[in-house]
Simulated assay, not measured.
Amino acid sequence: MEFITSKLPEYQAAQTEMKKFSEKWAKEIRDKFSEIDRMQRAYMAEEILLTEDLKRKRQNEIKEKELEAGDYNSKIFGMEGLLFQKKKELMKPVLEKVQRAVTKVCSQRRLDFMFDKSSDVGMLYTNPKHDYSDYVMEELGIDPKAIKALSNEKIGKSEQPVQLPVENSPKQKSTNSKLNNKQ
């Protein structure tokens, strides 16, 4: 799902919108903490001139502002905060569109099950011939061949193939045990 949704223009637009909200709310929170910092510096500068009652009053005002800023931060960025709600709201149409495409592909291909490999379903093996991501992307109007060509081009430029040793061979096992003994 993540792979497919990330290729949709609607997803990119939702991500941009989320970033705008996140930055706006983060600035508001920074401003609140800047105000608290200003209040603390002013209190420290005037502390020796204040009576005990005025000191307690200023300290309480600062504590109230800190609690208010912390509550606002939780309200925005908490588990069920406004950012989470906004993300859910913006992603709902994208996820519904992908779900409709998945349903259509499953119906056309007469599939009874389709698993999301990126989820916590714990698949140990999947045969690549059963990967229907390309069909779902085609259903959504995304060219999977262009995506794969772009991915292969990036991989070819940035990475060289790496040969990993096969640990099941007796020779490899004895080499590994010798290396482990030396360490």
Rank of each mutant, 00 (worst) to 15 (best):
V105W: 02
C106M: 15
M18G: 03
P165E: 13
T175N: 14
L8F: 05
R41H: 11
K55V: 00
R100P: 01
R41A: 07
K86M: 08
N73R: 15
D71K: 09
I4N: 08
M137L: 00
L90E: 00
Q108N: 14
S169E: 09
I76L: 12
L67H: 06
V162K: 13
E159H: 07
V136T: 07
M91E: 04
Y135V: 05
P170T: 03
D131W: 06
I62D: 02
T126F: 15
P170C: 05
A26M: 10
Q12N: 11
Q172C: 03
T16R: 02
L49Y: 10
G70T: 11
L179I: 08
V121N: 07
T51N: 03
R58L: 08
V121C: 04
M18V: 08
T103D: 14
A149V: 06
S177A: 10
T175P: 04
K65V: 07
K171I: 14
R109L: 08
L140A: 05
Y125H: 12
Q183S: 03
T103V: 00
N168I: 14
Q163P: 09
S169G: 05
K148N: 03
R30E: 15
A13D: 07
F113H: 05
E52R: 10
M91R: 00
L90D: 00
N127T: 02
E46R: 13
I142H: 05
P161W: 05
L179A: 08
K24A: 11
I36V: 15
R100F: 05
R109E: 14
D131F: 03
K148I: 14
M123D: 01
M39D: 04
Q40C: 00
I155S: 05
E68R: 11
D31C: 09
E159Y: 12
L95M: 05
K182E: 11
E68D: 15
S74V: 01
K55H: 02
K19T: 09
I76W: 06
R109N: 13
Y125I: 08
K117P: 04
I36M: 07
A149E: 13
K182C: 13
L124G: 13
E23S: 09
I155C: 10
M39Y: 03
P93Y: 02
P128W: 03
I147Y: 04
D37A: 14
T126H: 15
S169Y: 13
V121I: 08
L50Y: 12
Q163N: 12
F113K: 07
E10C: 07
E153I: 00
I48P: 10
A45G: 09
K129R: 10
S6C: 01
I62Q: 03
S22G: 11
I48E: 15
K171Q: 10
R110D: 11
R41Y: 09
S118D: 15
